[in-house]
Design a protein around this nucleic acid. Structure first.
Lengths: 241, 241
DNA sequence: TTATCATATAACTAACAGTCATAATATTAA
DNA sequence: TTAATATTATGACTGTTAGTTATATGATAA
């Protein structure tokens, strides 16, 4: 069985080599600007060989997207394990998304591109990606439920709907590299401010508002909150004015 | 000058015919699934003729997107003219976006597709589209400012940032036709509930909370609020449970 | 040494965006 | 009316790319 094993290993390795090569190219250029020929050249194989390992270009792309989703999922799971009130877990998940966007901008770009209607084929990866993202949202929902139970999150919201709203907001706000970055900067805000201020904006929508459970944003800065830097009392930090 | 005038008119008309034909196709099929040949066949012209009127496929697509943006812009301007408190204008704009998504799902789909990184070329339409969307956001910002001034919106938020957050949320929530529709429905919610409940969720983040200015959501239902149907007191309307 | 099988490839097809030389048609000038 | 000119339309083309196929290579097993 040793030989068959080795061949299997070699096959997996080849596949990984192809993914790695494709990733290098997709990280630096757009989907349309990377041809299968380019990838073949990068991995030093014939184009047709790639088709022995991947059904098509979409599947190869999706495989890389899946890598990216797995990393995000792990970040979310870590948030859930923290021993903090529910609302803090929600905040941590917001921060996790932000950190992810900083650490893996290319994965995030690919994830969002894959989300566009251009891809919605029935390749097995798509289901896997959906499941990965779904897990993140479920973890967020669980965190919200915890917050409702421990009194830090208002009890009249639905955990599922709220997890959707927050997920969509996170995604929208942290999707667009260059899309609205220019608009934000032209108004005298930094991208960090834009992201961090969002949490201050959304907090009243989530928080139970109970004095006894009230959480000071500054508390969270200490353990790495969504807020990158403590806010001034009046909550404004415009650079120009 | 009559002849030159007529020729100009005829040229404009041809252009419109091409746009109309392309629109019919792009409404029913995706960008990639509509070829320039298809459009040529639809408008009964040679493919090369289309290139006399439009630089390329992207520009033709962008022209249709621009049509869609104009309609949205008009909706937003109407909201701004209403004689209601600032927070109500914000709500009306949320509702305008929802109504738009119901009335023109195909335009909305095209708008969002055009927003993906696939297009970011320097064709003049792109700038025009950006300006159109920008106008909507500016109107929303103005409504927020009005709300701060009249005391219905909390004064510690920045109108610009808040307009960005709300715009991104509206877009995210109303973008995805089928993307999360299945998820929502599998949880026993209707798409309408999903959209309307969002406003109830977000209100505490915007509202000044001043008792004297407090606005009852039911007040808005009467003049066509974002909320499609009055919510039950506990704010839950799950169909299954 | 030879048969078998998986892996790799060169050469191919089909589809599409965009171009160009040429043709058809309308306008102007004689 | 007719010839010259400008405008609009077209068939046939190029170049590129995703994906396929028939064939070759090389390792393993008999």
């Amino acid at each position: 069985m040793g030989i068959a094993d080795r061949r299997q290993r070699e096959k997996e390795q080849r596949k990984t080599e192809i993914i790695d090569a494709a990733e290098r190219l997709f990280f630096s250029r757009s989907y349309e600007d990377v041809s299968m020929e380019d990838i073949a050249r990068e991995v030093e194989l014939n184009k047709a060989t790639i088709y022995l390992y991947f059904k098509n270009k979409e599947t190869l792309f999706a495989t890389i997207v899946l890598r990216g989703i797995q990393i995000l999922k792990e970040k979310y799971m870590e948030c859930m394990e923290k021993k903090v009130p529910g609302i803090a877990k929600v905040a941590l998940m917001g921060q996790a998304y932000y950190q992810y966007a900083q650490e893996y901008p290319d994965y995030l770009r690919m994830i969002h591109f894959y989300g566009s209607e251009r891809f919605s084929k029935e390749n097995p990866c798509t289901a896997e990606i959906g499941k990965g993202y779904g897990t993140c949202r479920l973890l967020l929902r669980d965190a919200i439920q915890e917050g409702i139970d421990d009194g830090t999150i208002r009890a009249d919201i639905d955990p599922f709907l709220t997890s959707m709203y927050l997920m969509i907001s996170f995604m929208g706000i942290l999707s667009m590299e260059n899309k609205w970055k220019l608009v934000i900067e032209s108004e005298g805000f930094s991208y960090e401010q834009f992201a961090s201020e969002f949490f201050r904006f959304i907090t009243p929508a989530i928080s139970s508002g109970e004095e006894s459970h009230k959480i000071d944003v500054k508390d969270f800065v200490s353990f790495g909150f969504f807020l990158i830097e403590p806010l001034t009392p009046e909550g404004k930090k415009r650079e120009k004015s």
